[in-house]
């Protein structure tokens, strides 16, 4: 790391300039490894459980966990549904071999199909997708007992857009990658040795065949990340972004997704009745008296 004022120039919002998203990967890697190690120790746990889908987010998470805790203390879970691709399976295996953590395969087809077999009405594919995400998470939590923590793999872009299932893929004990936009996470992925074929493939939740994140969202991560960066990190108003040349429809749509899905990012509301209420005015840190 260099000291002193190495950065020069003003950061301007410009739809054609993705450079403000660049990160110091060495520093970020160090901070995230320490975060995983420290917060797991504070919880008096020693293992990490990561749902490894074969995608880049869980690849980065499991690689960092392996570095922080040692491969013997990391369990990767590959939980395919019958529509999951063979490529995802190969990629999960590649990661397990490269980083040395144990990978267990737990298919979820039977239980998901059995549940919906008993449902009379026509089921929307989003419902099936949500059920799959929650099924997977319940398995991760089960496998974390008694001394493990479930690591979250939702990145900042997904969390802000609300592009995830509440109490499904969004659920976790701690999340090391939740403050990295997708673009930044890919950059980090390459620097910590995640194979290019995993980093470069089109992101998908694989909840139904042919689904891709960018196809479903209607914009690319590169576009969304830059808008979100200026809107959230740099606090620019949507109107200011449009003045600087960002597409008005895109900005409005992203801003609306962030607003509408905020409920997914906060704890459930508790009705205030007493003199002191959890979440309202009973405010203790989570690391209360932790080592």
């Amino acid at each position: 790391m260099t000291s002193g004022l190495a950065r020069t120039g003003v950061i301007r919002p410009d739809p054609k300039d993705p450079s403000p998203l660049r990160i110091d990967e060495v520093l970020v890697r160090k901070m995230l490894v320490l975060f995983i190690r420290d917060e797991i120790a504070k919880a008096r746990l020693r293992r990490a459980v990561v749902g490894v889908s074969g995608g880049v987010d869980s690849a980065v998470t499991v690689a960092l966990a392996t570095e922080a805790l040692g491969p013997a203390n990391v369990l990767g879970l590959f939980t395919p549904y019958r529509t999951s691709s063979g490529e995802s399976h190969d990629h999960a295996l590649d990661l397990s071999k490269k980083f040395g953590f144990a990978l267990e395969e737990v298919p979820i087809t039977e239980q998901v199909d059995a549940y919906f077999a008993g449902v009379k009405e026509k089921v929307d594919k989003v419902r099936v997708g949500n059920k799959m995400a929650r099924e997977r998470k319940s398995i991760e939590y089960d496998r974390s007992w008694p001394d493990g923590i479930v690591l979250g793999t939702s990145n900042k872009t997904e969390l802000l857009l609300g592009y995830g299932t509440q109490f499904g893929d969004m659920a976790c004990g701690i999340n090391p990658v939740g403050d990295l936009y997708k673009t930044q996470l890919r950059e980090l992925a390459l620097s910590i040795g995640i194979p290019e074929r995993i980093v470069r493939k089109p992101p998908t939740a694989e909840l139904w065949e042919g689904q891709t994140d960018e196809g479903e969202l209607g914009f690319t991560y590169a576009e969304a990340d830059l808008v979100l960066y200026h809107m959230v990190d740099r606090r620019l108003r949507p109107a200011e972004l449009v003045e600087h040349g960002f597409d008005a429809q895109l900005v409005t749509r992203i801003r609306e997704l962030v607003r509408r899905n905020h409920y997914k990012r906060v704890m459930p509301l508790i009705a205030k009745l007493s003199l002191r209420t959890i979440g309202h005015d009973f405010l203790y840190p989570r690391d209360w008296e932790a080592d």
Partner: peptide, 15 residues
């Protein structure tokens, strides 16, 4: 943690 500098807070404090 932007590229091309120290940790943002470290930079400010050292200055």
């Amino acid at each position: 943690v932007a590229e091309g500098g120290d940790l943002g807070t470290a930079e400010s404090c050292r200055l």
